[in-house]
Amino acid sequence: MFRIDQFAYNNSLSAVNPVEKIAFAVITLAIGIAFDTVLVPLTVFLLMSVSTIFLARVSAVFYLRLLSLPFTFLLVSMAAVIFNISLTPFNYLFGGAWGPVYIGISAESLRQAVQLLFKALGAVSCLYFLALTTPMTEIINTLRKLKVPVLFLELMILIYRFIFLLLDTAGKIHLSQSSRWGYASIKTSYRSMAVLIANLFSRAYWRSQSSYQALLSRGYSGDMKFLGVKYSWSYRNLMLILIIEAALLSLGLCGRANI
């Protein structure tokens, strides 16, 4: 969490207009999931990974570790797609009858699972590109320009800020518990964890009270406004994005007949 944030503020694409980065990530994401092929999401995945590692200069080791996070979920959902369960026999590659139930892997389900894998990877790489190159504040500023309701934006600002405060507080409680053997055995671990959670909520509540007082002290009157940093547009980048998206789109349209 902290590292993602550090990269977001500190990468080689920091100075690039956030709207360009968001457009690049979102349009590529849309194209990546629009086509039922393997080729397009695979290209998206490679494109985004290369952009993140070589253009934004995010550590490759860290990027791979991030990619490994959704893999568990991905494998579970792939398993659910691969195996077909049916009461009537179907055309399977492997499998057989188990009582009245037929379980097996069909060519169709295998194709779907592989597609799912690449689509998910492509989509994740787009979101990682965005998360690792664009600070949350800039994403919120862009959403503001897109006229997203203020309520959502303020919630995003506060959640973003308080996630770190909550993590920090939880970390401190955990540290103080561990220092006193709070996690020495499974039994004490459960107890300590329960105390930690209960405490975290009461502290969060107390803290939200004083934060509100601080907001009022600084003239808060129901609308959270900040000064955004001004970025200039780069026509070169815009053209580049246009060309890449057009290429991806044609790749998808041409490949539809084949794979």
């Binding site: 800020r161 934060s211 601080a214 003239g219 009157s221 000064l227």
Partner: peptide
């Protein structure tokens, strides 16, 4: 008012934005 714990006072994502909060209000 400058609060004792700066974490209760700073709530924006970066310093520039946080400092701008009061004057904008």
């Amino acid at each position: 008012v400058v609060f004792q714990d700066p974490d209760t006072q700073l709530f924006s994502a970066n310093v520039y934005q946080d400092v701008s909060f009061g004057p904008i209000n």
